[in-house]
């Protein structure tokens, strides 16, 4: 554990709280992508299967349980009490609904889940169920934010807490990269190309967002994407 990873984890933890605080406070999930949240739920469920058979630390265990339960709560809220405020039209991916006129997650399944799973079958740290699901979760996490970013792209502007949520998740990823660099130079056998490549891809996806978020904060102006 180093300060970079700890700060990253704390920002990740705060991101859930920000999103939940916002949804409860405004009694609305407008501007939040249900697809991204479901993808994150799949990510955590697949990756933290090891809760049942391996123990790293109390810290890891508590965080894993928190990540799963917080995301499950957010998804549950979006499907139940805040359902009426869900902006489904802006949470559509290209290709959604084109499959025999139904199956809304078609785009997510075809463009995100299936490719990640196929990649996990090819590049993993061991050809066994747990390792494949673990690699799948790493790849899926890298792109899980895409529906949320697409949604922002469509609406052009975001509500302050939703932007703060995206900022926290992006910053957490950025800190993880610094954590890997630190670990690489301080630990003897630390070598995780699979995680590094996915993590860098994941962080790059936030670059555009960070740029416009920073502009808005600097100028004290409203966040607005071009186009």
């Amino acid at each position: 554990m180093n300060i970079f990873r700890l700060s990253g984890d704390m920002l990740h933890l705060i991101s859930f709280l920000v999103l939940m605080y916002r949804m409860r406070g405004q009694r609305s999930c407008r501007g939040v992508s249900l697809k991204s949240q479901i993808l994150f739920l799949i990510v955590f469920c697949c990756r933290y299967l090891d809760l049942f058979f391996s123990f790293v630390s109390l810290y890891n265990t508590m965080m894993k349980i928190f990540f799963i339960s917080a995301t499950a709560t957010i998804v549950y809220w979006m499907l139940t009490k805040y359902r009426s405020s869900y902006d489904m039209d802006n949470d559509k991916l290209h290709g959604d609904g084109s499959f025999m006129g139904h199956l809304p997650p078609h785009g997510v399944l075809g463009y995100i889940i299936v490719p990640c799973f196929l990649l996990a079958l090819i590049w993993n740290e061991g050809f066994e169920a747990f390792e494949i699901l673990w690699a799948f979760s790493i790849y899926l996490e890298a792109v899980a934010i895409l529906p949320q970013l697409f949604m922002l792209q469509k609406t052009k502007e975001g509500e302050a807490f939703t932007l703060l949520y995206i900022f926290c998740v992006g910053a957490y990823r950025g800190l993880y990269i610094i954590n890997w660099i630190y670990r690489y130079f301080t630990e003897k056998h630390y070598w995780q190309p699979l995680v590094w490549v996915s993590g860098v891809v994941q962080t790059l996806l936030y670059a555009d967002f960070f740029y416009y978020y920073w502009i808005a904060l600097r100028d004290g102006a409203k966040f607005q994407l071009p186009g």
């Binding site: 990873r5 090891d50 790293v56 740290e125 673990w134 993880y176």
Partner: peptide
């Protein structure tokens, strides 16, 4: 490499 070493991050 043991599972513990490889999967020790969140």
């Amino acid at each position: 490499k043991s599972l513990l070493e490889s999967h020790d991050e969140l």
